[in-house]
Write a protein that binds this DNA or RNA. Sequence first.
DNA 1: ATTATTATGTTATAATATTGCAATAGGAGA
DNA 2: TCTCCTATTGCAATATTATAACATAATAAT
Lengths: 165, 165
Amino acid sequence: MSDGKPISIAFEQHDHNACLGKAMQAAQGYCEEHKLQLTPARRKVLELLLQEHRALGAYTILDLLREAGFNSQPPVAYRALDFLVENGFAHRIERLNAFVACALPGTEHSPAFMICRQCETVAETQSSESNFNFSTTADFSGFKIEQTIIEAKGVCNSCAEIEQL
Amino acid sequence: MSDGKPISIAFEQHDHNACLGKAMQAAQGYCEEHKLQLTPARRKVLELLLQEHRALGAYTILDLLREAGFNSQPPVAYRALDFLVENGFAHRIERLNAFVACALPGTEHSPAFMICRQCETVAETQSSESNFNFSTTADFSGFKIEQTIIEAKGVCNSCAEIEQL
DNA sequence: ATTATTATGTTATAATATTGCAATAGGAGA
DNA sequence: TCTCCTATTGCAATATTATAACATAATAAT
Ligand SMILES: [Zn+2]
Ligand SMILES: [Zn+2]
Ligand SMILES: [Zn+2]
Ligand SMILES: [Zn+2]
């Protein structure tokens, strides 16, 4: 086990019910403040994403929506996900064609993800200044970065221990 | 215009015929050295990718293969692309579901991409030490990074100038 | 030459995502 | 409230991206 402070919660033990409840409350509040409609389908999809610190594919979400009594055509899921991504409640994980709840909703941030190839947990952390060299290089050619995707594939601590055996 | 040296060539003016020829030569040599079969389909796909400093989708490549007289079933393109990616001649750009020729074939490197949303040029650069903060964060939770994808969307110098108008 | 490995041909299908249009609900102002 | 406008949803079809499965052919290894 490492001794740094847990910047990203996904791989750490934590009170996940509180984790989830807090996030839903935050979303609720943010929507009221910004006059956004957190409709039943959107709320449900966010709940589903918050349920696990893993990325879910659109069709997985669609199945879960169906189980919950929602209409189950693809646009239902994609529209809800679009809403959540556009408003910062979720992120799309490109390499998985999947979606994960944002760990820092409501704050301006440039996320980076650590994706365990074994248990598929997705931990979000901030890339912040981490791209110093990279953005310097960008400057050389006059390229203006608007959004950066950082996705690291690897293996989390507990999965690594299991692999050792 | 900036004054740094051009670390990535895609946005810079250059002798592209030489650029392409050199890359094909390098691929040829690498394959002979490593007993890899640079078969006609694989060679053609690599040529197509090298033709432009842009990412091409598998089905675009498939169309171009057909025009060049190759069999045009999806597996033809995907297999060739798999070969090229596995052996470091090309990279997959996740956010575009597309592929681009590697700018640094034969060298061990952790690529980062700058993708112009306007002209869709893809410039490859090295992320090298750029992820310092990020990997430090990774250490905190004991996560071991095996591969990192960095894709920056933005606008290149010349497209930005056009937008100004 | 025989065998094993690697690559290709071919068909079908899976998985992911979008379009278009009609119907409905929610919010703002008269 | 009523009307208008916009945002959201319902629904059917289709587009796009990617893989599975199995037969055949080419190449390499023995
Ligand atoms: Zn949690
Ligand atoms: Zn894990
Ligand atoms: Zn070039
Ligand atoms: Zn451009």
